[in-house]
Amino acid sequence: KTYTFRVRIVDEETGEEKEIEVTAKSEEEAKKAAEELKKKYPNLKVELE
């Protein structure tokens, strides 16, 4: 079973919002993916929905 999570990304500089879908095998995995995004884009606000 896989879970699909919507991750909302807000670029703090431009105020631009993007939504991406993360497919993960567990909620834990999705959280890790969101953390990776935060590391990659430090000025983005990442929200897991």
Rank of each mutant, 00 (worst) to 15 (best):
Lys1Gly: 08
Lys1Phe: 07
Lys1His: 09
Lys1Pro: 14
Lys1Leu: 08
Lys1Cys: 15
Thr2His: 09
Thr2Ser: 10
Thr2Asn: 11
Thr2Gln: 11
Thr2Gly: 09
Thr2Arg: 11
Thr2Cys: 15
Thr2Pro: 06
Tyr3Gln: 08
Tyr3Phe: 10
Tyr3Thr: 07
Tyr3Glu: 06
Tyr3Ser: 05
Thr4Asn: 07
Thr4Lys: 12
Thr4Tyr: 11
Thr4Pro: 13
Thr4Glu: 04
Thr4Gln: 07
Thr4Ile: 14
Thr4Ala: 05
Thr4Leu: 11
Phe5Gln: 02
Phe5Gly: 01
Phe5His: 03
Phe5Thr: 02
Phe5Val: 13
Phe5Pro: 00
Phe5Ile: 14
Arg6Thr: 13
Arg6Asp: 01
Arg6Phe: 10
Arg6Asn: 05
Arg6Pro: 02
Val7Ala: 02
Val7Gln: 00
Val7Met: 06
Val7Gly: 01
Val7Cys: 06
Val7Ser: 00
Arg8Thr: 08
Arg8Val: 11
Arg8Phe: 11
Arg8Lys: 11
Arg8Asp: 00
Arg8Ala: 03
Arg8Ile: 12
Arg8Ser: 05
Arg8Leu: 08
Ile9Thr: 03
Ile9Leu: 13
Ile9Arg: 00
Ile9Met: 08
Ile9Gly: 01
Ile9His: 01
Val10Ile: 13
Val10Lys: 09
Asp11Gly: 01
Asp11Leu: 03
Asp11Glu: 02
Asp11Gln: 02
Glu12Leu: 13
Glu12Phe: 08
Glu12Arg: 09
Glu12Gln: 09
Glu12Met: 13
Glu13Asp: 09
Glu13Met: 10
Glu13Gly: 07
Glu13Leu: 14
Glu13Trp: 07
Glu13Ser: 12
Glu13Pro: 01
Thr14Asn: 04
Thr14Pro: 00
Thr14Tyr: 01
Thr14Met: 02
Thr14Ile: 01
Thr14Glu: 01
Thr14His: 02
Gly15Gln: 03
Gly15Arg: 02
Gly15Val: 00
Gly15Ser: 02
Gly15His: 03
Glu16Trp: 14
Glu16Asn: 05
Glu16Val: 08
Glu16Gly: 03
Glu17Gln: 08
Glu17Phe: 13
Glu17Ile: 14
Glu17Gly: 04
Glu17Asp: 05
Glu17Leu: 10
Glu17Asn: 05
Glu17Pro: 03
Lys18Met: 14
Lys18Glu: 08
Lys18Ala: 09
Lys18Pro: 00
Lys18His: 13
Lys18Tyr: 15
Glu19His: 14
Glu19Leu: 15
Glu19Asp: 05
Glu19Ile: 15
Glu19Phe: 15
Glu19Ser: 13
Glu19Met: 15
Glu19Lys: 06
Glu19Gly: 03
Glu19Val: 15
Ile20Gly: 00
Ile20Arg: 01
Ile20Trp: 11
Ile20Lys: 00
Ile20Ala: 01
Ile20Asp: 00
Glu21Thr: 14
Glu21Trp: 15
Glu21Lys: 07
Glu21Pro: 03
Glu21Asn: 06
Glu21Ser: 08
Glu21Tyr: 15
Glu21Met: 14
Val22Arg: 00
Val22Ala: 01
Val22Ile: 15
Val22Gln: 00
Val22Asp: 00
Val22Met: 07
Val22Asn: 00
Thr23Cys: 13
Thr23Phe: 14
Thr23Val: 12
Thr23Arg: 09
Thr23Leu: 10
Thr23Asp: 06
Thr23Lys: 10
Ala24Thr: 05
Ala24Trp: 04
Ala24Cys: 14
Ala24Met: 05
Ala24Asp: 01
Ala24Val: 12
Lys25Tyr: 14
Lys25Leu: 10
Lys25Cys: 14
Lys25Ser: 14
Lys25Gly: 13
Lys25Asp: 12
Lys25Glu: 12
Lys25Trp: 12
Lys25Val: 12
Ser26Leu: 01
Ser26Trp: 02
Ser26Pro: 00
Ser26Asn: 10
Ser26Phe: 02
Ser26Gln: 00
Ser26Asp: 08
Glu27Gln: 10
Glu27Thr: 06
Glu27Tyr: 15
Glu27Ile: 14
Glu27Met: 13
Glu27Arg: 14
Glu28Trp: 11
Glu28Asn: 07
Glu28Gln: 09
Glu28Val: 07
Glu28Lys: 09
Glu28Ile: 09
Glu29His: 04
Glu29Pro: 00
Glu29Arg: 02
Ala30Lys: 01
Ala30Gln: 01
Ala30Arg: 02
Ala30Asp: 00
Ala30Val: 06
Ala30Gly: 04
Ala30Trp: 09
Ala30Cys: 09
Lys31Thr: 08
Lys31Asp: 03
Lys31Ala: 10
Lys31His: 13
Lys31Gln: 11
Lys31Phe: 12
Lys31Arg: 12
Lys31Val: 10
Lys32Asp: 07
Lys32Gly: 06
Lys32Val: 10
Lys32Trp: 12
Lys32His: 10
Lys32Tyr: 09
Lys32Glu: 11
Ala33Met: 14
Ala33Thr: 08
Ala33Ile: 15
Ala33Val: 14
Ala33Leu: 15
Ala33Asn: 04
Ala33Gln: 10
Ala34Asp: 00
Ala34Phe: 15
Ala34Glu: 07
Ala34Ser: 05
Ala34Met: 15
Ala34Asn: 02
Ala34Trp: 15
Ala34Lys: 05
Glu35Tyr: 08
Glu35Trp: 08
Glu35Asp: 10
Glu35Gln: 10
Glu35Ile: 07
Glu36Lys: 08
Glu36Tyr: 09
Glu36Pro: 01
Glu36Asn: 08
Glu36Ile: 09
Leu37Val: 04
Leu37Met: 06
Leu37Lys: 01
Leu37Glu: 01
Lys38Phe: 13
Lys38Leu: 11
Lys38Ser: 12
Lys38Cys: 12
Lys38Asp: 02
Lys38Glu: 05
Lys39Ala: 09
Lys39Thr: 07
Lys39Tyr: 06
Lys39Ser: 06
Lys40Cys: 11
Lys40His: 07
Lys40Trp: 08
Lys40Ile: 11
Lys40Glu: 07
Lys40Asp: 05
Tyr41Gln: 02
Tyr41Pro: 02
Tyr41Lys: 02
Tyr41Phe: 10
Tyr41Asp: 02
Tyr41Glu: 02
Tyr41Ile: 03
Pro42Gly: 04
Pro42Cys: 05
Pro42Asp: 04
Pro42Gln: 04
Pro42Lys: 05
Pro42Ile: 04
Asn43Val: 04
Asn43Ile: 04
Asn43Arg: 07
Leu44Phe: 12
Leu44Glu: 03
Leu44Asp: 03
Leu44His: 13
Leu44Met: 13
Leu44Gly: 04
Lys45Ser: 06
Lys45Met: 07
Lys45Glu: 04
Lys45Val: 10
Lys45Asn: 06
Lys45Phe: 10
Lys45Cys: 07
Lys45Ile: 12
Val46Glu: 03
Val46Asn: 03
Val46Lys: 04
Val46Cys: 11
Val46His: 04
Val46Ile: 13
Val46Met: 09
Glu47Val: 15
Glu47Trp: 12
Glu47Ala: 08
Glu47Cys: 10
Glu47Tyr: 15
Glu47Phe: 15
Glu47Pro: 04
Leu48Val: 11
Leu48Trp: 15
Leu48Cys: 13
Leu48His: 05
Leu48Glu: 05
Leu48Met: 12
Leu48Asn: 04
Glu49Cys: 14
Glu49Lys: 12
Glu49Gly: 11
Glu49Trp: 03
Glu49Arg: 12
Glu49Asp: 09
Glu49Leu: 14
